[in-house]
Design a binder for these strands. Structure first.
Lengths: 195, 195
DNA sequence: GGTACTGCACCGTCTGGTCGGTTTATGCAA
DNA sequence: TTGCATAAACCGACCAGACGGTGCAGTACC
């Protein structure tokens, strides 16, 4: 249990750092996401931050990996509640967006911060997106239709994060509901529906 | 004509600077978009760059405004070819995306670069997006449906820019074609069509 | 003794911005 | 046409501060 405590502490401190980094990236802009800023925001010392992430690249890498991991977990949780349902992956993604619509600390924030420093840091995200896309396309016969829906979901997340969405949250909810009916109307791989 | 020449030269130099800034932001990441980097890329001197844009904020502001202006012009050009057609604004946006799908120097690149320095720089974009949204919603009775389509278009642009889109360009073209049929099936404001 | 830090001094480089100066284009009078 | 004043366009050395990162002595805890 001692080991567990140690591990938990380590994780929670790392989380504090990453959380601080996300908050800075979102409110101040990726340009002002500096180690010193993270130091202040997280309440640690510079040495403390650099103890966990020996360089800024490592920090951003950690930020991407950590956020990606969280996303993956949330998707899997939703997926487990959707077993057997047609187009379960798209449904899971739509639920994920529903969860995340009010939060500010989302995957796109991490993407922006990381790509500002080094676009190559997005590689693990690309890999994950390929996996997601393969899951999506394996569930429907209408690939272009599914791709449109996925792009709509991602577009909502991006625009919402940058504060570019017009109208209020009710409108976004309505938009999300529309997307969900579109997913329901997507042909299943087994029993190809109408059209 | 002397005055015209002067004005043209001035504009072309400003364009060179902005073009250089965009290229850097896209290839190196917003973090490395520095005045010095722009100096080198544009072939000017530091003083020369700062003569046209007296600060980095001014440069980024110029970058956003300039890109937004270009987008607005392209939309209006497409709109003039779509006079009277239902949901003309969405159609214009879809054509714009078609034009831009292969280019790397797009509005989102400017958005990322600007928001990395100062999120407040996105305000003119927000204003423009409100205008676009009002145009879109004025043309259909199915607002949520239109919003989904718009988000899909923006999502495609963002994901394409960050290299997150899976599959090849043919797939994207197919996706865009799908979006266009969806726009065609959107109810017009006058004669509300099926369902 | 190892892990997880704090606190701080320090370094080299990068960055935004200033400033004095130079070149180039323009306008105008002799 | 020439000469010259004036301003716009541009150059590049320089500076102060920010930034990423190092190194190390010390501490608290298991």
């Amino acid at each position: 249990m001692g080991a567990d405590m140690t591990k938990l502490d380590k994780m929670s401190t790392k989380c504090r750092i990453i959380h601080a980094a996300m908050a800075i990236a979102h409110s101040e802009g990726a340009r002002h996401l500096t180690i010193d800023a993270v130091t202040v925001k997280s309440g640690l010392s510079k040495g403390g931050v650099l103890y966990h992430f020996p360089s800024k690249m490592a920090l951003l890498e950690g930020l991407v990996i950590h956020t990606l991991e969280a996303v993956r977990e949330q998707i899997e949780t939703h997926m487990s509640h959707l077993r057997g349902r047609p187009n379960a992956t798209l449904h899971a993604l739509s639920r994920l967006l529903g969860d995340v619509l009010d939060e500010t600390l989302t995957l796109p924030v991490a993407l922006l911060a990381a790509s500002a420093e080094n676009p190559a840091l997005l590689e693990p995200v690309r890999a994950e997106f390929r996996v997601i896309w393969n899951a999506i396309r394996s569930e429907t016969t209408n690939e272009p239709g599914a791709l449109v829906i996925w792009h709509a979901l991602e577009g909502m997340q991006f625009m919402n994060m940058m504060g570019l969405t017009p109208g209020d949250k009710a409108q976004l909810r309505q938009c999300l509901a529309e997307i969900r009916t579109m997913i329901d109307e997507l042909p299943d791989k087994e029993r190809k529906s109408d059209l």
